[in-house]
């Protein structure tokens, strides 16, 4: 417990990240990861308490591993929790995810700048 009796200084502010009504998602992948979770839940693939357990566990593990967890890594924890949960539920496997990730990486490298990256159909 701290006894904060002084008016807050600028130096104190980073300890409690602040923002106004800024963008909801910083990057498109965050929106996609969020939407997939909401959709899979709506379709009954997992319950919300199950989701919250997984997300909470990822956050706790990250904090335990030294992540200052200032809110900017939140969707990274979210994504990790989603990857774990979909594998647990048998919707896909960790191996399939790793393989598909490699395929996307190859596709990106084979795509000239400025053109949409498309996964080859034999991926």
């Amino acid at each position: 417990m701290t006894a904060d009796v002084n008016v807050p200084t600028e130096e104190q502010l980073p300890s409690l990240p602040r923002d106004e009504d800024g963008p909801v998602f910083d990057e498109p992948w965050q929106a996609q990861a969020f939407a997939m979770t909401v959709w899979l839940h709506e379709q009954g693939h997992f319950t919300w308490p199950e989701w919250a357990d997984h997300l909470g566990a990822e956050i706790a593990a990250a904090v335990g591993a030294g992540d200052p967890d200032l809110g900017d890594t939140y969707y990274l924890h979210w994504l990790k929790a989603l990857e774990t949960l979909v594998a647990e539920k048998g919707l896909t496997t960790a191996d399939a995810l790793a393989e598909r990730k490699e395929a996307w990486d190859r596709a990106a490298h084979a795509t000239p700048h400025g053109q949409p990256i498309v996964l080859p159909t034999d991926a």
């Binding site: 992948w29 896909t92 996307w104 990486d105 990106a108 996964l119």
Partner: peptide, 25 residues
């Protein structure tokens, strides 16, 4: 001359395309 996707972006694309192929999303 080539495109590059971040590690995180690749993971999200992998997840989304796999689940889409299975008709789950």
């Amino acid at each position: 001359e080539h495109s590059h996707l971040s590690d995180t972006d690749l993971r999200v694309r992998a997840l989304e395309s796999l689940l889409t192929d299975k008709g789950l999303v």
